[in-house]
Amino acid sequence: MQGGIKMKRVLVACGNGIATSTVVATKIREACEDQGVDIGVTQCKLLEVASKVSDYDLLVTTGKFEGEDVNVPVIGAMSLLTGFGEEETIEEIVNALK
């Protein structure tokens, strides 16, 4: 336990839980490390979101997520793949995890 603050957990989902989610997860991890935000990142397939998301504080998806309602904030992270608007999205994610 570090200072009693609960570490925020983020779920990163993409089509197969391998490729694009790894890119996004790595970028989130690096950005949070830079800013000293302590987080835990888990990757999964979009299909698994429904069964997993309740254990997390934030859901980040690489594509359009239009599945069922989830009870945590959702951020789309396409920009981390295309490279356009990357900084804004990273900022949004880091702020949500602070």
Binding site: C14, N16, T61, L81
Partner: peptide
């Protein structure tokens, strides 16, 4: 057109 992994579209409800 930025080429992306098709993973970005497979979350579509109809696709699933």
């Amino acid at each position: 057109l930025i080429g992306l992994d098709a993973a970005v579209v497979v979350g579509n409800t109809e696709v699933i």
